[in-house]
Design a protein around this nucleic acid. Structure first.
Length: 339
DNA sequence: AAGTCGTGGGG
DNA sequence: TCCCCAAGACT
């Protein structure tokens, strides 16, 4: 059976995230911190840098906290029961059951989005999500075998990911097609039932990219709770419900020759952000380190910008102001040499 | 209980 | 282009 540390790390990364997106991050984390005790000792800022781009940053904060608890209160050994695992930060119903089954062979009822879909179709569950979860978990619990419960769970998840897909499920290939109640009524795609979702509001704001002659950029750190908590950003305004007219003038972090360089649109889970981007070239001696107006900011060299804990929306804003900020270093070799 | 919390890819 | 959503947790 796989190491609990590997299972935990991958399951947390896979929360609401595709396997493809997780792969490089999983490998990077194992390379940087091979054991849970390594992660427990790591600098939180380094963990946030390594997580940057993967999203849902509370996961990274909880990952670090969880590693510390396991290291200091459990002697570096993960609890081997579902209940014990659930007490740890960032481990909820699904992740606790998954680790218990996959890493410890426990007969726990694993219920994720894939298995919700498979079982809501198999039993034609009319209750909409998320209200149907207890019912679905009970059905999964009945079917979960004593032997290899981890493989059972992973098999169901693979079935949901490849055959019993949200749209156009490949029912002809499904090993459960003889028993599927939703297939009998020819409408498997309409399951699981779920409540209608509301539309996304628009928020607007401005971001300010200050550049010294050496190419360094002014950055600052966000508070460690809420949206993009603990991550790095360029100075900017609050993001508010759309207001007509320009509100950025009074919100500029400091006086400079700010030049508008367009806007970016970024879609978060529950709102759309329209961020106006401004750029200013400032003098080399320009000092804003620790300035309250810019929120404990610092100057970051151009070469190390890509290694910061910058969420994707901030990389997009900086790239809007400095188009090649995150491109690979210039190759000095002439490009027009025939080969 | 319903809202908050990212991002990138696919249909 | 737009909409959906992906191995959810926390408040």
């Amino acid at each position: 059976m796989p190491r609990p540390y590997d299972v935990w790390l991958s399951e947390v990364m896979l929360q609401q995230t595709t396997v493809q997106a997780v792969k490089p991050y999983f490998e990077k984390f194992l390379r940087l911190w091979p054991e849970v005790t390594d992660l427990a000792r790591a600098d939180t800022e380094e963990v946030m840098k390594a997580w940057a781009g993967l999203g849902y940053y509370a996961r990274a904060r909880n990952l670090k906290k969880c590693a510390e608890v396991v290291a200091t209160q459990h002697g570096g050994i993960f609890p081997d029961t579902e209940e014990g695992l659930k007490t740890l930060p960032g481990i909820g119903d699904y992740t606790a059951a998954a680790i218990a089954a996959i890493a410890f062979g426990r007969r726990s009822a694993v219920l994720d989005g894939n298995i919700e879909r498979v079982f809501s179709r198999l039993y034609r569950v009319e209750t909409p999500l998320p209200a149907a979860k207890p019912e679905l978990r009970a059905l999964v619990g009945e079917m979960t075998p004593e032997e290899r419960p981890g493989d059972f769970a992973q098999g169901l998840m693979d079935l949901g990911a490849t055959i019993c897909t949200p749209k156009r499920p490949a029912c002809a290939l499904c090993p459960l097609n003889e028993d599927c109640l939703a297939l009998k009524t020819a409408d498997p795609e309409t399951f699981p039932r779920k409540a209608a979702k509301k539309e996304k509001p628009v928020r607007v704001g401005a971001a300010f990219v200050a550049i010294r002659p050496d190419g360094s950029v002014l950055l600052r750190k966000r508070g460690d709770t809420g949206l993009l908590g603990g991550m790095t950003e360029v100075p900017g305004t609050e993001w508010t419900a759309r207001i007509d007219g320009d509100t950025t003038t009074a919100s500029r972090p400091f006086d400079a020759e700010w030049e508008a360089c367009g806007a970016i649109i970024h879609i978060f889970t529950h709102f759309e952000l329209r961020l106006s981007v401004y750029r200013a070239n400032v003098a080399a001696r320009f000092e804003r380190n620790g300035d309250p107006a810019t929120g404990n900011a610092w100057w970051e060299a151009a070469e190390t910008l890509k290694d910061q804990a910058l969420p994707t929306v901030m990389k997009k804003a900086i790239a809007q102001a400095i188009p090649d900020a995150f491109r690979p270093a210039r190759v000095t070799k002439p490009r027009n040499v025939p080969t």
